[in-house]
Amino acid sequence: MSTPALVRPTPVHRAADLLAAYLTGSFYFSSARGALLADGIHTRVRADAGGYAPAAAQAMQAARAAGVADPVVAGAVGFRPGARADLVVPTVVRRAGAPAGAQAPGADAGTAWTVTPRPEPADYADAVGRALELIGGGDLHKVVLARCLELTADAPVPVPALLARLVQADPAAYAFAVDVTAPGDPAPRTLVGASPELLVSRRGATVTANPLAGSAPRSGDDATDRERIARLLDSAKDLGEHAHTAAQVADVLGGFCVDLEVPPRPEVIGTPTMWHLSTRITGRLADPADPASSALGLAEALHPTPAVCGVPADRALSAIVDLEAEDRGHYAGLVGWTGPDGDGEWAVTIRSAEVCDRTVRLFAGAGIVAGSDPEAELAETTAKFRTLLRALGLGDVA
């Protein structure tokens, strides 16, 4: 009588365990859909003439043939066309359900920080004024201008603790940590953040995008916040800015979908620091088997949206190069994962920072349209910095 084959149960992980197991150099991504932790590098994915999606599909097929149990492509792509991408097929992938709120490890209150704004706040306001001149001249409808804070600590910044604080402060956010170490870096470099904005998600033939544009700081006072939400929903400037973004996302997805549902008006969603106008767009793919219709392929087609670039995109990109003091790097790019069936989830890389040893570089941007006020846009970027600054144990610093 033959001995029955031993069947090993599929490991079941908890989201908290995956977060606790994260080490600098791993890939971590979590959202309300679930958590994913990946380690090791089986293959690095390089773009071919068709972009990253076809190369990703081939890399996952080869990895599966080589014995990788759960091949996915995971990582981040920078903002500008041709920007650096850090996409890999990991060796080992662990999955869990969605994270829950919990007591996060406190930031080290004894850390001493040096803060360098790039550019200085007054210079950022001047750049907004120059953008308004371009908009007034008819060259642009909208451009998103970002600014940078470079923070230097008196000791290396512990990325796992920073990630844990971000996840536990807002479990519904698209939280991530990606190794983006570049040649010449003195230590590992990690892109880490908690984005509120879904670029695109795919499950089977169903795709979802959730563009955000039009924002207000969250005050923490219920009455004040109700007033701010009402103003957002009644603001011609913010509604117009949002309409540009939602229309472009719907137009791109319409080229891949046979059915598309676009709500007629946005709603307001909140994070611990901000309120955002939000439109949740859903569709059904015409050809789910096409690599261009994979989650990564759709993300490439959508990027950059007007929420992080502008309208029209080519002129907005030129204005960003001319007016921003710092190269964005991975900020305002895309971060996430795709599986061999095309399913996956990609977020817009905002509320993020790059951490390398004692240095933290974070960016925040604001959408500039006709009627924008330079000081108000400066204040909006200050509010958007709070997600990372709070996780680092800092208040408003610029």
Rank of each mutant, 00 (worst) to 15 (best):
A295H: 13
L362S: 02
W275A: 00
P160T: 05
A83F: 06
T338E: 13
L362Y: 04
P312W: 06
A325D: 13
T3H: 08
G106K: 09
L36V: 15
A213W: 00
P304N: 04
G393S: 06
A182I: 00
T382Y: 02
R390H: 14
G106A: 15
A96I: 00
G365S: 09
R14V: 07
A66K: 07
L392I: 00
H330C: 09
T91A: 15
G220H: 05
A182Y: 00
R80F: 09
D259K: 11
V360A: 00
C309A: 12
T114N: 11
R386Q: 15
A250H: 03
P54W: 07
A100F: 03
L285I: 06
A383G: 12
L18A: 06
L317P: 07
P288A: 12
D179N: 01
A247D: 09
G270Y: 00
L298R: 14
V369N: 10
G97Y: 02
Q61W: 05
P188E: 00
R328Y: 06
E324F: 05
C257D: 09
S293D: 14
L317H: 12
P71E: 10
R44D: 08
I135L: 10
E241H: 10
R84L: 12
A98P: 14
P183I: 00
C148E: 15
D343Y: 07
S219K: 03
E377D: 14
V268M: 04
H141R: 14
G329T: 04
L132A: 09
W275Y: 09
D225N: 02
R390M: 05
A109H: 08
E345Q: 11
V192R: 04
V178E: 02
A85V: 06
T91C: 10
D179H: 00
K384D: 04
G110W: 03
A347H: 05
D221G: 03
